[in-house]
Amino acid sequence: MGLVIIFSLVTLLALFGVIRSLREKNILGLLFGLGTAAVFGWFTIMTVLHHGYPVAH
């Protein structure tokens, strides 16, 4: 359960960074933010689907 929370927080922070880099027109920050949001967002979704929420033993 802790892993899902950490992945979700990283994804939310990456999305915040994407929005901020769009406002500042920072292309490199936008690319890294989108990559981070995509990877950690995928990990979040797959962890929830595989292990369930809350964790099913």
Rank of each mutant, 00 (worst) to 15 (best):
V18S: 07
V48T: 09
T11Q: 03
T47C: 08
F40Y: 15
W42D: 11
R20Q: 00
F16D: 00
N26G: 02
L12E: 11
I27L: 10
E24P: 00
R20P: 01
F32M: 13
T36G: 13
I6F: 13
L9M: 14
G17R: 08
P54C: 09
G33Q: 09
L13M: 12
I27R: 12
S8W: 14
W42M: 08
I19R: 04
M46C: 03
L30M: 04
L28R: 03
F7G: 07
I6L: 14
L13Y: 10
L22E: 04
F32N: 10
S8C: 15
F43R: 06
L34I: 07
G29R: 01
L3G: 07
I19D: 01
T47M: 10
V55P: 01
L9R: 09
N26W: 04
G17H: 13
A38R: 09
L22N: 06
H50R: 15
L49D: 10
G35A: 15
I45E: 06
G33A: 15
L12G: 11
A14V: 11
E24S: 04
F16R: 00
I27G: 04
V18M: 13
T11A: 10
G17Y: 13
I45N: 02
G33L: 13
L15M: 09
F16C: 02
G35P: 14
G35Y: 15
L49P: 05
T44C: 11
T36V: 14
L3D: 09
